[in-house]
Structure formats: structure tokens, C-alpha cells
Design a protein around this nucleic acid. Structure first.
Lengths: 325, 325
DNA sequence: TTGTAGGCGTTATCAA
DNA sequence: TTGATAACGCCTACAA
């Protein structure tokens, strides 16, 4: 691969000058530029980003740690993050923590070694201290780690209210909330709080089931739903922690002879694209994923550039009715 | 951030020695190692991968270009690729080409500038020459670009046969194949060939519809299916180019008053995880996505290490019956 | 067994 | 306006 020196030689100038042209710094005559550019073209020259990064001590790489890209919510979020990062001249290093403490730690280490300019964390299984110590621009999703670390999330409480109110308005009187392990994701736990508050205010019976570990294990949700129909066969409204969980609920309803929405109504959360392919199509609380991705990237970039950012970033949700309510 | 020199100073040795310890090269006494390691610990030292990469001219980064991570098939594939890359000490730079020629080209340029060690291409909209010229370890999915560039794919022809045979065995006599734009993806076009061959051999009527452009546009599939039911209302068997297309077919059947599988039987392709959440669950031709991801990474690594690899890598598929047949 | 010197490709500083 | 020169942090001969 040709280096800046090769270009300099061919253009009959110094490497410094080539570098100047490359970065458009200082006063450069049109003629000079043309000369250098054509030399670059001829050699099919590509500046070595490793060297640039080293010298500028800035890599223009953002690290993204999420539990699993294969989960629809995260894959859609990742897509938006990538898109927006790219638009701003940043590359994306993708890490699947699989919600594993050890892996997450290794990934953080790896990203620091790679000198990424910042990390977007969609997975957080570690202690607060681990995050605070890393002294790197950071943004988290759905978790408030400490007062200094900015986070992005949807308005979980409002979403929980919207969903629960809808169920009650539609006539449900025995509500169940099904979610992931509550310990890890403090902010989305607020969905449950809103659920409980709303039900209580309306004097409606409600219960809640959640997985033991923070697994995204399909079997776990199926067991949970079996348990629900066994212990509370009278349930007529389900608020699911995600659209995928809602789809499992839908499946469980079928298997237990419940008609949806006649016997049981279901509301999901997220607004993933495939939800319209489920049958009946799932009513959901839509998170503004694109905006969330965009914002996360912006928050990283602003920090990289030395700006100060707001730590609390709560984005509005929207009720999107499908056919399960 | 502390550098190797800081560690050297603290440990009372030279930077070279620290480097040796870091890379476990040459003869190192236990005592020395201990001294160096503890200095590293104290300083919370992380070797600068940018510098290492520059000096070794090897970044341990693999670039992945796919149309969209948000599509289930690609998100699952990406997940496996990431996992396997990580296991082998490689990082993954993610690029969504959005099936856009211009973007794909820019991404390739960007990845070359970033000095990735190799590129896995799940998107290919460019001319053959563009790929051949890049003189970088390369692996493609589902596309044979040239005799030298290795590719990984499932046994599309066998898959097409399996699917079509199943439909015919179940009694379908009016078959339709629905797929993406055939021009771009030569190998998965073989699914259609198998479909047509099989139908012909059995003397079964068949037709084929595909999108105009290589869009993954939901609307396009819905239009296509409307067209199918309008022009060929007698169709009783559909072989879809992907599970997602199959899900759209399912939806279209419902909207057109067709019962599945009684009136119309459907077989998809891919074997994505969410397919079991569709209702009825979709019968499919399962691609071994994990193995495909693993293989792609292995093929890159082997090339990086100067080994020679087989260019043709066709992996077996499996029929997985759901409830749409 | 350890250290010195030079290089990886680029940018920044300072002169000219 | 352009060009030496010295970083950036690490690795690899070559020496000692």
C-alpha cells in the first residue's frame, strides 16, 4: 500500500504538504492541490487511519456493547446507531456481551485498548464503579449509572401508563405484567411501576411475573406464561416488557385457548418492525429508536469534542394500536 | 493514559522488556514478569492497539458489510460472526450498506483506510472488478464474484428442491415462488432454479414473482403478493425467498381469505429465530447460520495468516416443518 | 537476558 | 506557502 511519502515523491512535494492537502489545512494553491490529488489517484492512495488515529490520538471509532444483536430491538437500534455514526465520520465496533459480566468487562477493556473515542452501552451488568472509572465518553441505554454518565431512554413511566390505561379502558380487570429481570434494568422497571400505579388507581387487580436471571431465553418466557395461566387463569390483560415477550404471550394464549383480543388483550413495548407480521398484529408502546440511536451517537460526539451534555435524556413514547387490544 | 514507557519506568526495565513480557517473546524470568505485570496493574495499563496495529501492520479487525443489520437474517448472522471473531481475537467493524452502491463503495474505502485485515461481504452491488482490485482477504455470502474470491452459502439448490418437493407432496398443484431481485444475488437465484426444475419434473404449474429493485422494502412484498392473488387466485403453494417474505405471504393469505395450510401452503427460507413466533409457525429451509458465520471468519483468518482456502463453501440446509405446510 | 535505535504512517511544531 | 523534525506508542532487528 502506498504511503504519504510515495504520494509526496510522485507529486514532487514533501510529505507535510501532502498531509496538508489531505486535511485541507493552511493555504494551498489550486495547482498544488491538483498535483497532489492526481498523484493520490494514480497511486490509489488511502491514508492509513491507524497512523492518523495514533498521531491525533483520536480514532473516530465508537464502541457499541449490547446484549445480543440478534434481538430485534437491538438490531434495529444498532442499525440506527451505525447509520448516524457513519454520517458523522465515525465507525462502529460491535460487541455482543450476551449479558455476561465477564464478557462485558473484557469488551470494555478491548475497546479501551482500541482507543475508541467513546462507548455506547446497551448492556450493563457491572458495578457502578467499573463504569465510572473508565474515564471515556460514555452513554448508556435505559440505565442511570451515576449522575455524571448520560443516559438515553424512552419515557418508560409514561409508556407503562399508556399501556395499562388502554387495557383498563378496553375493559380488562385482571392484569398481568411480564418482564425481564427487574434488578438489572432499573429504568425500564419504571414501566412496571406505572403499570402498578395505574392499576391501583383504577382499583384493578394486577400481578407481575419476571424472569429470574437476565436471560433473553425464549424458554424462560414460555415457562413464565404457562405459570401465569396456571396460577391466574382469569387474567384478561397483559402488559409485556417487549414486543417479543408480547408475541410469546400471544402464542401462549393460543395454546391455552384464549382468544386475543376477546379473552385476553395484550400490549407490548418497543415497536420493533416485525411486530406487524405477528398475528394478530401487536399493540405496542413505540420507542423512538431512530432518535434514540441518533441521540446516543450525538452525546458521544459532543463529549469527544469536549462539550458538556445533559445526562438525562428521556424520549417520548407513542401508543400504536395493533389488533391485540 | 499510561504508555509502555511509564510501565518500563515503574518496573525499572526498558520499554523493550515490557513489550516482550506483553507479547511473551523470548526468555523471561518469572520474577521479571511479575515485576512488569504488577507495574502494569498499578498503572492500569492497556497497550495501545492503534500503535500495535500500526507497527505490526495488522489490525485484528474484520470489516463486515451487510445490507441492513435490522433484518433478522443478517442480525443473526452478524451475531454469530461477531461471536466467532471475538473468540479468535478479532474485532468487528459493522457497516450497513443499505444495498446502496455508493455507500458500499465508501464503506470498502473506509475499511481499507482503517486497515482491516479482511472484509466479509454480505452485500454486493458493485462490479466484479471493484472486488478483485481490493487485494484484501475477502469472503462473500451468497455470491460468487470470481474464481479466486471465496464464498459461503447454503445449498440453495438443495433447499429449493426440498421446499418445492414438500409442497408438491402435500398436494399443491399451483406453485408460486416469491423472491427478491434475481439479478443481484446469483447464488440464491438457484433456489428458484430448483423450484422450477422440481415443478417441471412433476408436471406442476408454477410461476415466479420478484421485486424490481433489490429493496428490502416491506411494501414491495405486499404489492407482489396482492398481484399474485389477483393474477393467480388458484395458487395453493408458495415458496418464499425468506422467512420474512413467507410471513408477508401468510399475512396476504389471511387478507385474501385463504386458510394456511388448508388452502395455501407456504415454505420460507433461512430459519430465523422469530419464525416460530409467527402464526402459524413457518415451515422453512434452515440455513446453518452459525456455521456460515464461523466459516466466513475462519476463511478470513486463514487468508490473513497466508493460508490458502477453498473458494467454494456450500453448507447443507435442513427442512424444518412448522405449521404452514 | 536485556537494552538501543530505527521504523510503522501520520500529524504538529517551528523555521525558513 | 512549504519543508525539516519530532512526536504518537509500539515492535523488531541488532548489540551487548
Amino acid at each position: 500500500m502506498p504511503t504519504i511519502k510515495d504520494v509526496a515523491l510522485k507529486a514532487g512535494v514533501s510529505a507535510t504538504t501532502v498531509s496538508r492537502v489531505l486535511n485541507n489545512r493552511g493555504y494551498l494553491s489550486e495547482e498544488l492541490k491538483k498535483k497532489v490529488y492526481s498523484a493520490m489517484d494514480e497511486l490509489n492512495y488511502r491514508p492509513n487511519e491507524l497512523a492518523r488515529s495514533l498521531s491525533r490520538s483520536r480514532s473516530n471509532i465508537i464502541g457499541l456493547i449490547i446484549p445480543h444483536v440478534s434481538l430485534p430491538f437491538f438490531s434495529e437500534l444498532t442499525s440506527h446507531i451505525e447509520e448516524h455514526a457513519y454520517r458523522n465520520g465515525y465507525k462502529l465496533l460491535l460487541c455482543n456481551s450476551q449479558q455476561d459480566k465477564h464478557k462485558e468487562l473484557e469488551y470494555i477493556d478491548m475497546l479501551r485498548s482500541s482507543r475508541v473515542d467513546g462507548i455506547i452501552m446497551g448492556s450493563h451488568t457491572l458495578e457502578v464503579e467499573s463504569y465510572r472509572q473508565m474515564s471515556l465518553p460514555l452513554v448508556t441505554f435505559d440505565r442511570q449509572i451515576s449522575p455524571e454518565i448520560p443516559y438515553v431512554c424512552s419515557d418508560n413511566y409514561a409508556g407503562g401508563r399508556l399501556a395499562t390505561t388502554l387495557l383498563i379502558e378496553k375493559g380488562c380487570r385482571k392484569l398481568a405484567h411480564i418482564g425481564g429481570h427487574p434488578g438489572l434494568n432499573i429504568l425500564s422497571h419504571r414501566r412496571y411501576e406505572a403499570f402498578a400505579d395505574t392499576a391501583r388507581e383504577h382499583g384493578v387487580w394486577h400481578t407481575s411475573l419476571h424472569t429470574d436471571h437476565n436471560s433473553f431465553d425464549a424458554g424462560a418466557y414460555e415457562r413464565l406464561l404457562r405459570q401465569l395461566f396456571r396460577e391466574h387463569p382469569e387474567v384478561d390483560g397483559i402488559f409485556a416488557g417487549s414486543d417479543i415477550i408480547a408475541a410469546y404471550a400471544l402464542k401462549a394464549c393460543r395454546e391455552n385457548g384464549r382468544r386475543v383480543p376477546q379473552d385476553v388483550r395484550i400490549v407490548g413495548y418497543d415497536g420493533i418492525a416485525v411486530r406487524s407480521l405477528f398475528h394478530p398484529s401487536i399493540s405496542t408502546i413505540r420507542q423512538p429508536m431512530e432518535e434514540m440511536g441518533r441521540l446516543a451517537v450525538d452525546l458521544i460526539i459532543k463529549q469527544v469534542e469536549g462539550g458538556t451534555v445533559s445526562t438525562v435524556n428521556i424520549l417520548p413514547v407513542e401508543l400504536e394500536e395493533g389488533s391485540t387490544t
